[in-house]
Measured scan of single mutants.
Amino acid sequence: GTEDLKEEAKKALKKGDKERAKRALKKAGLSEDQIKKFIKEVL
């Protein structure tokens, strides 16, 4: 589900894998702006 994808994105970001995080967030249905915001909040 969406929460799982967001968790996956957080883990990817902590490993420095932004591309993987972006893919997971796109799958979760987030827009580009939401993805940028999510990444900023996590990092």
Rank of each mutant, 00 (worst) to 15 (best):
G1S: 13
G1T: 14
G1F: 13
G1L: 14
G1N: 13
G1Q: 12
G1M: 13
G1W: 14
G1P: 10
G1C: 11
G1D: 13
T2Y: 13
T2E: 12
T2N: 11
T2C: 06
T2P: 12
T2V: 14
T2F: 14
E3N: 10
E3G: 08
E3C: 07
E3I: 10
E3T: 09
E3K: 09
E3R: 09
E3A: 11
E3P: 07
E3M: 10
D4S: 12
D4N: 10
D4R: 13
D4L: 12
D4F: 13
D4T: 10
D4M: 12
D4H: 11
D4A: 14
L5T: 03
L5A: 08
L5E: 04
L5Q: 04
L5K: 03
K6P: 03
K6V: 14
K6Y: 15
K6Q: 09
K6N: 04
K6T: 07
E7M: 09
E7I: 08
E7P: 01
E7H: 07
E7Q: 09
E7W: 08
E7R: 08
E8M: 10
E8C: 06
E8H: 05
E8N: 04
E8K: 06
E8R: 06
E8Y: 13
E8L: 11
E8V: 10
A9F: 04
A9G: 02
A9Y: 03
A9K: 01
A9V: 08
A9L: 04
A9P: 01
A9T: 02
A9R: 01
K10L: 12
K10D: 02
K10H: 06
K10G: 03
K10F: 09
K10A: 08
K10E: 06
K10R: 15
K10I: 15
K10W: 09
K10V: 13
K11Y: 08
K11L: 13
K11C: 11
K11A: 13
K11S: 10
K11R: 13
K11H: 10
K11W: 09
K11E: 14
K11G: 06
A12Q: 05
A12R: 03
A12H: 10
A12Y: 14
A12L: 13
L13Y: 04
L13A: 03
L13T: 02
L13D: 00
L13G: 01
L13N: 00
L13M: 05
L13V: 05
L13C: 04
K14G: 07
K14L: 15
K14F: 13
K14D: 06
K14C: 10
K14T: 07
K14P: 00
K14E: 12
K14H: 11
K14N: 08
K15I: 14
K15A: 15
K15F: 10
K15V: 14
K15G: 10
K15R: 13
K15N: 14
K15W: 09
K15T: 12
K15H: 12
K15S: 14
K15L: 14
K15Q: 14
G16H: 05
G16T: 02
G16V: 02
G16Y: 05
G16I: 02
G16P: 02
G16A: 03
G16N: 05
G16E: 02
G16Q: 03
G16D: 04
G16W: 05
G16L: 04
G16K: 03
D17T: 02
D17K: 04
D17E: 07
D17V: 02
D17L: 07
D17N: 07
D17R: 04
D17W: 08
K18H: 15
K18E: 14
K18A: 12
K18M: 15
K18D: 08
K18Q: 13
K18Y: 15
K18S: 11
K18W: 15
K18V: 15
K18L: 15
K18G: 08
E19C: 08
E19M: 09
E19V: 08
E19I: 08
E19L: 10
E19S: 07
E19G: 07
E19K: 07
E19W: 09
R20E: 11
R20L: 12
R20G: 15
R20Y: 11
R20M: 12
R20P: 02
R20D: 06
R20A: 15
R20K: 11
R20T: 13
A21V: 04
A21L: 04
A21Q: 00
A21I: 03
A21G: 03
A21K: 00
A21Y: 02
A21N: 00
A21T: 02
K22G: 05
K22A: 11
K22F: 14
K22W: 15
K22D: 05
K22H: 12
K22L: 15
K22E: 14
R23E: 14
R23A: 14
R23M: 10
R23Y: 07
R23Q: 14
R23G: 06
R23T: 10
R23P: 00
R23C: 11
R23I: 14
A24H: 06
A24K: 05
A24E: 05
A24V: 13
A24G: 02
A24I: 15
A24R: 03
A24L: 15
A24T: 07
L25N: 00
L25R: 01
L25G: 00
L25E: 00
L25M: 03
L25P: 00
L25V: 00
L25S: 00
L25D: 00
L25T: 00
L25C: 01
L25Q: 00
K26F: 08
K26A: 11
K26Q: 13
K26H: 08
K26S: 09
K26C: 05
K26E: 13
K26Y: 09
K26N: 06
K26I: 13
K26R: 15
K26W: 06
K27P: 00
K27Q: 12
K27C: 05
K27W: 05
K27E: 12
K27F: 06
K27T: 07
K27Y: 06
K27H: 06
A28V: 04
A28H: 03
A28L: 12
A28R: 02
A28S: 05
A28P: 00
A28C: 05
A28M: 10
A28N: 02
A28T: 03
G29C: 03
G29F: 02
G29Q: 03
G29V: 00
G29N: 04
G29M: 03
G29L: 03
G29D: 02
G29H: 03
G29I: 00
G29A: 02
L30Q: 02
L30I: 02
L30V: 02
L30Y: 09
L30W: 11
L30N: 01
L30T: 00
S31D: 11
S31R: 05
S31K: 05
S31T: 13
S31L: 04
S31M: 04
S31V: 03
S31N: 11
S31I: 02
E32I: 07
E32Y: 08
E32D: 13
E32H: 07
E32S: 07
E32T: 07
E32F: 07
E32L: 07
E32C: 08
E32P: 11
E32N: 09
E32R: 08
D33P: 06
D33Q: 09
D33R: 10
D33T: 09
D33F: 07
Q34L: 06
Q34K: 04
Q34S: 05
Q34Y: 05
Q34W: 04
Q34F: 05
I35C: 03
I35F: 02
I35V: 05
I35M: 05
I35D: 00
I35E: 01
I35L: 03
I35Q: 03
I35Y: 02
I35N: 00
I35K: 01
I35G: 00
K36P: 03
K36I: 14
K36Q: 14
K36G: 07
K36C: 10
K36E: 15
K36A: 14
K36R: 13
K36N: 14
K36H: 12
K37W: 09
K37C: 08
K37M: 13
K37F: 08
K37R: 11
K37T: 11
K37I: 14
K37H: 11
K37L: 12
K37Y: 08
F38K: 01
F38C: 02
F38E: 01
F38A: 02
F38L: 04
F38H: 02
F38W: 08
F38I: 05
F38N: 01
I39C: 05
I39W: 05
I39V: 05
I39E: 03
I39M: 09
I39P: 01
I39K: 01
I39Y: 04
I39H: 01
K40P: 02
K40F: 14
K40R: 12
K40H: 15
K40Q: 14
K40T: 12
K40W: 15
K40G: 09
E41H: 09
E41K: 10
E41P: 01
E41G: 08
E41C: 10
E41T: 09
E41W: 11
E41M: 12
V42S: 07
V42K: 04
V42W: 15
V42T: 08
V42H: 13
V42R: 04
V42Q: 09
V42F: 15
V42G: 05
V42A: 10
V42P: 02
L43P: 03
L43M: 11
L43Q: 07
L43T: 06
L43Y: 09
L43C: 09
L43V: 06
L43N: 05
L43I: 08
L43A: 07
L43R: 05
